[in-house]
Design a protein around this nucleic acid. Structure first.
Lengths: 211, 211
DNA sequence: CCCGGCATCAATCCTTCGGTTGATGCCGCA
DNA sequence: TGCGGCATCAACCGAAGGATTGATGCCGGG
């Protein structure tokens, strides 16, 4: 008998990557790449129509909707396909956002083809598929919660990285400057630094915030 | 008659991207993808052996040798193939490094297949092939030298981005703090900002420094 | 040859950032 | 139910960073 194949939807804004994924995945006899789309919006539309088992979703699209938002939109529906996030970078923020959005797995684009195929099968079976690097990262984060910034702290630090002053941040977030400073002090302690610029440097190095 | 095809070497550490480039380029009848390699070192070795017209070279490899170094090594030899740099990011520093290393062209990975093929043909003919975005960038830089940071200024700003204080920077570069501050003032003026953190933000946004 | 940009430094002033201490309310978990 | 983490705010103070002015030597291009 021929088992029913795994039906795939590819979403990535790079034509070359789409072609590469197609080439790599179609060598697997039990995979069928049904469609590939260049935007997150198209992915949501197509996925809503049904007919897919697994969606391979990039996180960074050239603007507009984020991959994590698209992931949330897709997984929110009943009888939704599994979403495998496939991205180049591995910032903590991205990983958590994807997982919270309901992604079944998280892979890096430099993964070898076998790993990729294995992850797709794992995802199709409904099981969680995390790249080894990612898994390690999450373990680390669990083990040392001291390093983990709170939601609010991350928010503040991101604005610092964007070049805002404490005054500007306090206005943006409807806080007093005292609160902003307080958050920063906690951030410094967690990151082991003693200035805003080095906090940004440390956080970007650890992938806690977006560049 | 059949014109002799353009013989290609692909260098990229992402298996998926290599497969994608192969898939995209092999649809062109006048292209022949002779080999693809996952490291810059292998690219230099193979290119040294001859037999290639154009090398498609990634800039970011997963460590060790940089694409720009490999580019320099390849173009340094007599009778070298043309090198087309193909990368995801477009920081000014990367672009200039690649061009100084002797790259014939510079493309972004999100380029559509037609653009890619056109660039390869242009490069094979020995002409310069720059992606529109990149060309614009260079024009901008030429037109407004005010925006261009001097070597020293870039050096200082990079250390600021790394989280160093003025005192630390002055020690690192064997300068007085006055000089560091002076550089910073010029940097602020050129970038149109008024603090170190926003200078870092602006510079990373414009790709003037590494993240 | 001289102008202009780059790199270097000094001295001043003052804004604001950073460190400290201390306090409150809320929520989740044990 | 009470502890601890998170988020919020206040007041204070010292210092680092930023603004300003001004000056020097070097080098390359017009």
């Amino acid at each position: 008998m021929t088992p029913s194949p795994v039906r795939l939807l590819l979403a990535d804004d790079h034509p070359v990557v789409r072609a590469g994924l197609r080439a790599v995945l179609e060598t697997e006899p039990d995979f069928e790449v049904v469609a590939d789309v260049p935007t997150a919006e198209r992915a949501v539309e197509l996925a809503a129509g049904g007919g897919f088992d697994v969606v391979l979703m990039d996180l960074q699209f050239g603007g507009r909707m984020l991959g994590s938002q698209a992931t949330a939109a897709i997984t929110a529906r009943p009888d939704a396909p599994r979403v495998l996030v496939l991205t180049t970078y591995d910032t903590d923020a991205d990983i958590l956002a994807a997982i919270e959005a309901g992604a079944t797995g998280y892979l890096l684009k430099d993964a070898p083809p076998e790993e990729l195929a294995a992850a797709v099968r794992t995802a199709a079976a409904g099981k969680s598929a995390l790249a080894p690097t990612i898994a390690l990262r999450l373990m680390d984060r669990m083990r040392t919660p001291a390093t983990a910034l709170s939601r609010r702290e991350t928010e503040v630090l991101q604005l610092v990285a964007d070049g805002l002053s404490n005054a500007a941040i306090s206005k943006r977030l409807f806080l007093s400057q005292a609160t902003v400073k307080s958050h920063l002090v906690h951030i410094y302690a967690k990151l082991g630094v003693d200035s805003r610029t080095s906090a940004v440097a440390a956080a970007t190095a650890q992938g806690l915030i977006r560049r």
